[in-house]
Every structure is written in structure tokens, then in C-alpha cells.
Design a protein around this nucleic acid. Sequence first.
DNA 1: ATATAATTTGCGGGTTCCCGCAAGACATGG
DNA 2: CCATGTCTTGCGGGAACCCGCAAATTATAT
Lengths: 240, 240
Amino acid sequence: MKVLVIEDDPLHRSYLSEAVRAALPECLHVIEAENGLVGERLARENKFAHVVMDLQMNARNGIEAARTIWKERPDTRILFWSNYADEAYVRGVSRIVPPGAAYGYVLKSASDDRLKLALRSIFIESQCVIDREVRGLQQRSLGNSNGLTDSEYEILVDIALGLTDRAIATRRNLSLRSVQNRLQRLYEKLEVYYPAGAAEEDNRFNLRARAVSIALLRKLLNYSALERAEAELSEWLASH
Amino acid sequence: MKVLVIEDDPLHRSYLSEAVRAALPECLHVIEAENGLVGERLARENKFAHVVMDLQMNARNGIEAARTIWKERPDTRILFWSNYADEAYVRGVSRIVPPGAAYGYVLKSASDDRLKLALRSIFIESQCVIDREVRGLQQRSLGNSNGLTDSEYEILVDIALGLTDRAIATRRNLSLRSVQNRLQRLYEKLEVYYPAGAAEEDNRFNLRARAVSIALLRKLLNYSALERAEAELSEWLASH
DNA sequence: ATATAATTTGCGGGTTCCCGCAAGACATGG
DNA sequence: CCATGTCTTGCGGGAACCCGCAAATTATAT
């Protein structure tokens, strides 16, 4: 068995390699990559079936790397090892995992044992291992209670990118009014209207901008999500 | 000499303590804190004059911690050891450093030697040591060339928080038109208008929202800056 | 002190946003 | 089949945004 470790922090990288070697004595080779780009290349050249990677990396973000790896070999088993359980990350991962693939999401704050157990479960038993905290987010985002639906999340990203209603309408093939309709529901979900005990008559807030602000503060959005969305947008803009 | 180390990642924390001990043999005690809150408390109780800390921490962000530490003892020497040189961080630090205080800003990607040299320069020689990359940002943000002035940055933060023009006007003691004036200049600086070779007639972008988006992508703003601004805002809202 | 530049403010208007109302489209289930 | 619920679309209008123009104020420099 060979395992590819993709992580840009040197300390974390060596810790992770050590953990892999300890948890998987049957693992003969542990190869390290210091960012997503190198990771993608190594995965392609050496046909790794087992990968463990960070999500937040400078050169190329973990979600991007995972997407291309999975696109080329959908049966690759990937364990995400991240500092954060931002909903933006969790959504990003859920969006790209191929049907039936085995993957895992473990927080860096987890204990040594949890990490090693996860490594064995995923790479040996082909089982999905999702950190409890992360699991909670997934559930909540499915069950409507205070979680955004896909269409609401989509339009949230669109206004965060700075698109006008009209631009969103043409991009998503909707009428102008539908876009505004979805925005209304987004504003309700995000509780933009009366920010927890404020005055009633004066709207201090620009709803559109406030929605983005709240989403960022609640970590429904983060830098990496914006970055990906921006890339998709410029792609779409190019094809008019 | 006693040194206080504030860093929430265990691996980085022990690495940092080790570096301090190696660079400063005259240092008798190295005390560790695992987040900003604990760090503040220890600094207050033990009257540390030498602190090295991370900026991005969960419980309480490094900038907040540094502000309260400096407020209580302005002669404290603080070395910031951060993963990122986001302009948002650099601005945040510049804003709180007391006049004449010795401080440093070193990136985690710097070599062992650079870190140790910085530790000695600041703690022994009382000299400021700013990473070259960070220094570059500071210069650029002072020299107007493509950098935002303080008032432009201020209004950027205000629209990122989701305030209306009117709300900004009352908060900053300006007329409505002045607010919009500043916004115009902000939009010019951020190049919101014609995004590098797009169509001429159709404005796909909502300028206000796009400005925030661009600022986030360029790291003029980040989560921690937003968080601080939000705290200040709710304080101001309370006092009407 | 006077010229020059940069900010601030008011006015007016075109555009976009925000949304109530109401009618159609679509699915799900009895 | 109809009932019910969710989603979409059009219309219309009030509010907010964006900004050109021009006068007044303030800063900066020579």
C-alpha cells in the first residue's frame, strides 16, 4: 500500500506522515507533497489510491486538488484533515465526492487515536469516517431547520461575488423576479431583517451586503469558497 | 528573562517554545498559552515583558489579545508569528501598536534562523523586525499607488458589514453625498467598474457587493477583520 | 499669502434593489 | 380527480444606490 500526504505546513506534514506509518504498518511508501498542485501531479503519475490531505493550502486548495484527483480516478480514497469545520468547506467537499466513494473528514483537533482509527477505517475497510462535528453540519444543512437549501446557497454565492439581479437571472436561467424571490427567502433564513432586538423603523442595513456579511461571520462562506466561485464565474463570463 | 508563547496549534506551540529556548539561552522560563484569552490572563498575572504569538486563533484572535496586553503594559515587546501576510492583518497590527513600542512580524514560512534572529533582535535589542513581505504591504498601503487610504479602508469595512449609506453617514459624521463620494473613490481603486476586459454597456456587477468581493479576494479584508469590525459596530449600535 | 489640489456638501436624475400582490406551473398525495 | 404546497413569473411602486455637476470648505505647497 502507498499513501500520499498533501499538506503545506511542514510540521503538520511530518506529523501526518508519522501517524500514517504508525497506523498502517502494511503501508510501504508514504510520499509527501507540499501543496495541491504537486499533490495532483504525484497522484496522477503514481496512481495513488490512498490520499490524506489538508483543505486550506496556499498554492492550490484541497478541494480543487481532490476534485481533479477524483475526476481522474473516482475510486481514490481521500481523508481530509482540516483545522476547521466551516460549513463552506463541508459543502464544498460534499459537492465533489463521487457516488459511492469512500472518504473521511477529520479535524486537526482530534486525538492521535481518532486520526489513526480513521486512517484504518477508510484505507483498509473502505468506510466513510466523518467527524461528529462535521456530521452535525451536514445534517443541519439537509434538514431545513435554519440551514440553506442548495438554491439559496447558490444565490448567496452569486451576490457575494457581486453580481446584479439581472446577471444572476441570465446566469441561472431565471426571471428577474425569481431571483429576487430567492433573495427574499435567503434574507429570512439569515435573519437580516431585524438583527436581534434593534429599532423597528430604520433599516440600518443594506440587505444584500448584510446577508454576505452574516454568511461570512457564520462561516457559511469563506475565502476558499469565494475563490472557487470566482473561478467558475470568470469561466462562465468567458463563454458569455 | 521570561517569554510567553501564545499559539493554539500544539505542534506549532512546541516548535515555537523550542525555538525560543534555543535562540535565548538567557531565557529562564518559557510559558505557553493555548489561546488569546489564556494568554491575556497570563500576561497580566505574570507581567510578561516578552511575548510571541500567533495571529489566527480560535478562542481569541491575536490582534485582540495584543491590544489588551499593550493597553495594560505598552512597553511589552511582541513578536507576531503568522501564516499569512494578508493586508487585513498587517493593517490590524499597525493600528494597535503603541508609539515607540518594539514589535515584530515574522511569517511561519521563514527559516529557523530568521525566526531566532528576530527573537534576539526584538527581545534583546528592542528593535522592530518586520518580514520583508509584510514590509512591502505596509509601504504600498501608505504610498497611494493602488493602496487604500484610511478613510477608504474605513468605508470598505462599513459596506462589508452591510451598512446603508445613511447609516454610514451618521456613524462617521458625514453627509450622505460624502459617503457616496468616498464609495466612488473606493470603487475606482478597487477597479470595480470594468473588470479587465469585459463588455462595455452592461453592468453585470453590483458595485457595492463587488467591491467587498474583490477586497476579500485580494485579502484587504478577511474573517478576523470582519469579526473585529462587527464587534465595534454592535458596540456603536448599543450606544446609538 | 496666494495658488493649487483634495474633500465635503447639495441638487437632481437614472438605475437598481426590495417586495406586496396575484396568477400560473409543477409536484405530491389522498 | 382535486387539494395542497412549493416554486416561478409579471406588474407596479417606494426606497436605496450611483453619480455628474458645481459651489464651498479645507489642506498643502511654494
